[in-house]
Simulated scan of single mutants.
Amino acid sequence: MMESGSVRPHRVQSVARAFSLLEAVSAAPDGARLSDAAESVGLSRSTAHNLLATLESLGYVTQRSYAGRYVLTERLTELVRGSVGSDDALRELVHPLLGKLATISAETCYLAVPALRDYVYIDTVESPQLLKLAVPIGGHDPFFGTAIGHVLLAFRPATAQRLAHEQPDEWTRWKDTVAEVHKLGYALDLEDYQPGLCCAAVPVHQNGRVVAALGVSGPASRLPEERLRELSATASRLLTEAGMA
Rank of each mutant, 00 (worst) to 15 (best):
V80E: 04
V181Y: 01
G196W: 04
L52H: 07
R229K: 14
V80P: 00
H140R: 11
S236K: 01
D88K: 03
V216K: 01
S26Q: 11
A164L: 01
L43S: 10
L58G: 09
E180G: 08
D169Q: 04
S236D: 02
F155P: 00
A164W: 00
Q161Y: 00
I104F: 09
A24I: 13
E241P: 04
L111K: 05
R69F: 10
S44T: 12
V15P: 01
H165M: 06
T172P: 01
V210K: 08
L79K: 05
L76M: 10
A18K: 13
T124A: 15
S35F: 10
P224R: 15
S57V: 03
T73R: 05
F144Y: 15
S65V: 06
A53Q: 07
Y66V: 12
L228A: 05
A115H: 06
S86V: 12
A27F: 05
Y121W: 08
T240P: 02
V15M: 10
V80F: 13
C199M: 03
V125L: 00
A18F: 08
R156I: 13
Q206M: 06
P9I: 03
G208Q: 15
L190R: 14
L184A: 13
R11I: 11
A16K: 13
D118W: 01
R11P: 05
L21V: 09
L58E: 11
S232K: 05
E107C: 04
S236E: 03
I137H: 03
T73A: 08
M2L: 09
V41E: 09
E107Y: 06
L52D: 09
R64S: 12
R17K: 14
A154D: 01
Y70W: 15
A201P: 04
